[in-house]
């Protein structure tokens, strides 16, 4: 945790609640996107995000300032998302949802409105999805990912390997025209 964040946490705990916005603003986009890629829906993602920030504010006193605030808030996001996905079989609904949030530009007909990223993420289980998003999209280390998800580094490697294989397979099946690569 950097010094600035530490100061902000102390300010909030001393009653200056306005500092909370400055503390969480660097993560507002990444947390929303993380939640969006897990749920596949912006509204659900916003709900998860809201709950995450609310919990972070409410339980800020429990946060250990020697640790990373980013990892702590990501952990809350993952826990909230897990509860959200588990709640009333939303998991199946979320995983089978058709994503029409973004229109893919060139080479795609209206039938292929579904985002490439979401299409690929669809092939993953919830755990694989979380690990892939944290490691490959958010750039966290294997150790940090394991800490956030409360599993071992080995489990992270196993799921990550499986996730990358599935994504490659789905990408090749659905978007063969995008498969060009340059030899290095």
């Amino acid at each position: 945790m950097n010094e600035n964040e530490k100061e902000l946490v102390e300010m909030i705990l001393n009653g200056n609640t306005e500092a909370f916005e400055r503390l969480v603003i660097p993560y507002r986009e990444s947390i929303l996107n993380l939640a969006y890629r897990i749920t596949g829906n912006v509204e659900d993602a916003k709900e998860i995000c809201q709950e995450t920030f609310l919990r972070a504010f409410k339980y800020l006193r429990k946060f250990d300032t020697r640790k990373s605030f980013k990892n702590w808030i990501f952990k809350i996001t993952m826990n909230v998302a897990k509860a959200y996905v588990n709640e009333s079989n939303k998991g199946k609904e979320i995983l089978n949802r058709t994503y029409v949030n973004k229109v893919i530009k060139d080479n795609h007909s209206p039938a292929e409105l579904k985002s490439i990223l979401m299409e690929c993420l669809d092939s993953l289980s919830i755990m694989e999805r979380k690990i892939f998003l944290l490691r490959d999209m958010e750039g966290l280390s294997v150790k940090e990912t394991a800490e956030i998800l409360g599993c071992s580094s080995i489990a992270v490697r196993v799921h990550l390997s499986s996730a990358r294989k599935k994504i490659k397979k789905r990408f090749q099946e659905k978007f063969p025209q995008w498969m060009g690569y340059h030899e290095v």
């Binding site: 996107n33 949030n101 490959d136 999209m137 490659k168 090749q172 340059h182 290095v184």
Partner: peptide, 25 residues
């Protein structure tokens, strides 16, 4: 190389394809 290419593309798409809060919200 296929793995590398796919992963790079996915990351690029992820960077372009982002959602964000409206300021008012």
């Amino acid at each position: 190389l296929e793995y590398k290419s796919v992963l790079k593309k996915i990351k690029d798409i992820g960077r372009d394809e982002k959602v964000d809060w409206e300021e008012k919200e």
